[in-house]
């Protein structure tokens, strides 16, 4: 008598079935991610509703009350032109939180496309573009941006595109590495054996599998985009006055700190610091979930 019948193998009731849901839950449970998210959401709120909720008009001069230290009327004190620092800090979120995400979006889209092409085709295309990418990456971002902005004239729009295209190679590099690895997997050969064209293989077959590292990289890039915009504004090649942008405010007022007017720069600096650190914490949280 037969002791084991040959039939269809049944699948292992996989715990991995809830994998995606599990991972999302993990991300949201991570303390670092949540802290980061909270701070970022706070600043987003300020960026959107700032002008409505602040006590004073951030642009209104009041020379009589210039350089007043923090007090009950002016929580963060006033700057050289008597403007309320608190209001300026809150509204200052707006420009940077418009420019940096846009720049990041451009760099992610362009960088991903570039990385896919380089990683999939390899050969001449990869070598050629890689050399150009290497050349671009041989310069610190700020300097490349500076060069471009000097040539084109600084404005918010220019900054978006300059940073977008300066960061694109960095993302391209990460994407390319992931694509090179994916490309060796058999399902790519299977696709070629179906006579799929290159576009299909890159964007329909490979891209979904390299999305996770792209997401992490994009979040990190967002942090660096904020970093870059703030730094460029500080040296005068970023956001232009009279915006209450933090970098710009610091640039205008830091000469005064020797004389003791610390509130004109410290609060703006803290705003920048909290925002970038928060974004990085979010990136860390996402990466932690993906690593599992």
């Amino acid at each position: 008598m037969s002791i084991a019948e040959p039939t269809v193998a049944m699948p292992v009731a996989s715990e991995e079935a809830n994998d995606r849901r599990d991972r999302l839950r993990q991300v949201f449970r991570s303390a670092t991610f949540l802290t980061g998210l909270a701070v970022v959401l706070f600043w987003v709120f300020c960026a959107i509703f700032g002008s409505v909720i602040v006590p004073y008009d951030p642009y209104a001069d009041d020379l009589m009350n210039a350089l007043m230290p923090p007090s009950a009327e002016h929580w963060f004190g006033t700057d050289q032109l008597g403007r309320d620092v608190f209001s300026r800090v809150i509204v200052g979120a707006r420009d940077i939180l418009t420019i940096a995400p846009l720049a990041t979006l451009i760099s992610t889209v362009v960088g991903t496309a570039l990385g896919l092409v380089m990683g999939y085709f390899r050969g001449f295309i990869d070598e050629g573009i890689s050399r150009i990418v290497d050349a671009l990456l041989a310069l610190p971002t700020v300097i490349v941006a500076l060069l471009a902005l000097v040539a084109l004239g600084p404005s918010s729009t220019t900054v978006v595109f300059v940073i977008g295209f300066t960061f694109a190679p960095i993302i391209a590099r990460t994407v390319r590495a992931s694509v090179l690895a994916e490309r060796e997997l058999d399902y790519v050969f299977a696709a070629q054996l179906r006579r799929e064209n290159a576009f299909h293989i890159m964007f329909v077959e490979i891209l979904p599998n390299v999305l996770p590292p792209i997401m992490v990289e994009a979040t990190v890039r967002l942090g660096y985009a904020i970093f870059a915009v703030a730094s460029l504004s500080f040296i005068g090649f970023g956001i232009q006055p009279p915006s209450p942008d933090w970098g710009l405010s610091i640039s205008a007022n830091y000469g005064l700190i020797g004389a003791g007017y610390w509130w004109t720069v410290l609060f703006d600096g803290s705003a920048i610091a909290t925002l970038v650190v928060a974004v990085n914490l979010m990136a860390d949280g996402i990466q932690g979930a993906l690593d599992e």
Binding site: G223, F227, I257, G269, V276, N280
Partner: peptide, 18 residues
């Protein structure tokens, strides 16, 4: 490490100067 690496130099510079 994460936090220190992302804060722009001029921000930390100013805090340090202060």
């Amino acid at each position: 490490g994460l936090s220190a690496t992302i804060v722009p130099e001029f921000v930390s510079g100013i805090v340090l100067i202060l």
